[in-house]
């Protein structure tokens, strides 16, 4: 089943391919090519949850670490500390409770694992793995290369998530600097990414232990090898 649907016009990404075409849209190809030599990724994020009912925006800072093919560390650092680890085989969920890390016997760990694997695919610029789960629409974005809009195919999943939008910056990096997850018309979760580091050496036990937390944070204190001039500001987020 082909569920890849392509928008009618894609600014900065070339002409759209035909629905059902085996050829991916140019932006997806560029994104994948830009990530081809990227073996590890470390990136900070700011997660903002907007809930219409409460008229509040809840913000959380964290970081994400990735290593090919699909190891991922997703860590909320402040104000709440929690951690999701995927070492390519198994998901472990942790909560920092009563002053220490506690590994949770989470009944939803399998679902969390699927989400982490998806994030891993997206970091690699690979959206083909999600073709059965999402309809993908590539749309123009005047500030960048384009927006990838993923709509869940399953009505059950759409109960939780209506759409996920990934904002892709212009060439040559094609960085995804913003992800917007739309739960309903008014409720959203937004992730904004900064300090993205490629191919840096990751701390020991990054994907297996919560105790690597401090070492993971220290990665962002190191000079970025891709940004050697300390006086040159890092590329700001969108």
């Amino acid at each position: 089943m082909t569920v890849l649907a392509v928008g009618q016009s894609v600014v900065g990404a070339g002409p759209p391919s035909q629905p059902g075409s085996p050829e991916p849209p140019p932006l997806l190809r560029s994104l994948r090519e830009a990530r081809a030599n990227c073996h590890t990724v470390a990136v900070r994020f700011k997660q903002t949850k907007r809930l219409h009912l409460l008229d509040v925006a809840l913000t959380c800072d964290g970081w994400m670490f990735f290593s090919r093919p699909d190891c991922l560390r997703y860590e909320n650092v402040s104000p709440v500390r929690s951690l999701l680890l995927y070492d390519g085989k198994k998901v472990n969920c942790y909560s920092f409770t009563e002053g220490q890390w506690k590994r949770l016997r989470n009944p939803g760990a399998d679902a969390v694992g699927r989400v982490l694997r998806q994030i891993g695919h997206w970091i690699q610029g690979d959206f083909t793995a999600d073709q059965k789960a999402f309809t993908l629409d590539v749309q123009p974005w005047d500030q960048g290369a384009g927006v990838l809009r993923l709509t869940p195919c399953s009505p059950a999943l759409r109960e939780y998530v209506r759409q996920i939008s990934l904002y892709v910056e212009k060439a040559p990096d094609y960085c995804v600097t913003r992800v917007l997850i739309q739960e309903s018309e008014q409720d959203t979760t937004e992730l904004r990414f900064t300090q993205e580091r490629h191919n840096c050496v990751l701390p020991e036990k990054t994907f297996t232990s919560p105790e690597a937390s401090a070492a993971c944070g220290a990665v962002f204190d190191q000079p970025d090898p891709n940004c050697p001039d300390p006086n040159r500001p890092e590329k700001p987020s969108v």
Binding site: L51, L58, N76, V80, V161
Partner: peptide, 21 residues
């Protein structure tokens, strides 16, 4: 999250670590 509304009502929500309601 707990929010007290004008008039004394309450709105309450629970979110996952990844932000889902």
């Amino acid at each position: 999250i707990v929010k007290v509304l004008d008039g004394g009502g309450l709105s309450v929500a629970g979110l996952t670590d990844m932000g889902n309601t």
